[in-house]
């Protein structure tokens, strides 16, 4: 379990991370999302003890990183944004070095072989890291983080610079690791986070702007649910019929299409399912529904809304970063 309380980091007058608090339960995969420069890496560097915090605490399974660094660091596997590789070593030599550095007590050869199998670099074990491609380097970095089976894994943008096939592999790996480990992983790619994580924290300008389960995030942010429809028939009739449904807050035509068809966006109260009502209402006035899709607001829209809204607030408050 990872507990972060009121974590703050200042560089001079600039607050890179501003009073962040969250808890990650064992076996949870937490996605850390934010635009570039939002403070993701700084937060992760503080959690792992690479840099100190200006104030606030990080507790991992009950031991605090600044009070008891030796024991706490043993519980963390960290893959920084740039994998910390000694490029003049072979993969195996490097992993042996990291094994010793982390003071792992497991049987050395077997454990390293197992980790290399897990991230699929066994065939590359005798190659010098300098000569490896970016994807393989990333995997060596991954292997390094997994040494010693730490209960907590912190991964800073683990899929940057990989090709789509490798990205899918890494995602699968993260998902499978999430069963045994607590995983915190950051990215600025939304689809990736939503595909892998149980929970998402959105961070912008050093502050948490959203913290919710992946499937709830969209509704958690907007406060109402949305339905996108494609209906054939006169727009005025359609809209007035939909508006008669009690839970509906707003109904708007988004776009006219050919053959007397149009796209509509219906916003309705949270916790109510209006799909059946919409269906019966349209059936009554004889306008066929050609397409119906709930949760129209994509995560991308939401992400932009969250991060830009925050920036606007920030400017209004006279921030200067």
């Amino acid at each position: 379990m990872v507990e972060v309380k009121h974590l703050t980091k200042c560089y001079g007058d600039i607050k890179a991370v501003d009073d962040i608090s969250f808890t990650v339960e064992t076996g949870e995969v937490l996605g850390f999302l934010g635009p570039n420069g939002a403070g993701k890496s700084t937060t992760m560097n503080m959690i792992t003890g690479y840099i100190s915090s200006t104030s606030g605490t990080v507790t991992i399974d009950g031991s605090e990183i600044l009070d008891n660094p030796k024991e706490t660091k043993k519980k963390i596997g960290y893959l920084p944004e740039i994998p910390p590789l000694y490029v003049d070593m072979t993969v195996r030599k490097y992993l042996e070095f990291m094994f010793d550095l982390k003071k792992v007590k497991l049987p050395k050869k077997e454990h390293i072989d197992e980790v290399m199998r897990l991230v699929r670099i066994s065939e590359q074990s005798e190659r010098i890291i300098k000569n490896l491609s970016k994807g393989y380097r990333q995997r060596v970095g991954f292997a390094q983080a997994l040494l010693g089976n730490p209960p907590v894994l912190i991964l800073d943008e683990p899929t940057v610079g990989l090709d789509p096939k490798q990205i899918i592999e890494i995602r699968k790996l993260i998902k499978s690791l999430g069963k045994k480990h607590t995983v915190i992983f950051s990215s600025h790619v939304l689809s990736e986070i939503s595909a892998t994580c149980d929970r998402i924290i959105v961070i912008s300008n050093g502050k948490i702007v959203a913290d919710a389960k992946t499937e709830e995030l969209s509704t958690a942010v907007s406060g109402e649910e949305k339905l996108s429809l494609e209906i054939e028939g006169a727009s005025a009739d359609v809209i007035s019929a939909i508006k008669k449904i009690p839970a509906v807050i707003r109904a708007n035509k988004v776009k006219s299409m050919r053959d007397n068809t149009a796209k509509y966006l219906v916003e309705y109260e949270k916790g109510v399912d209006v799909r059946r009502d919409v269906f019966s209402a349209m059936a009554r006035i004889g306008c066929p529904i050609l397409n119906m899709q709930s949760g129209n607001e994509t995560l991308e829209d939401m992400f932009l809304k969250l991060t830009t809204a925050d920036q606007n607030n920030y400017r209004e408050n006279g921030g200067n970063s």
Binding site: T48, G49, Y50, K73, P80, P84, L85, Y86, L101, K103
Partner: peptide
Amino acid sequence: RQKTDQALLTSPTS
């Protein structure tokens, strides 16, 4: 420069 100090400083080695 190579950021390998991140591995050193986040390890349990003092």
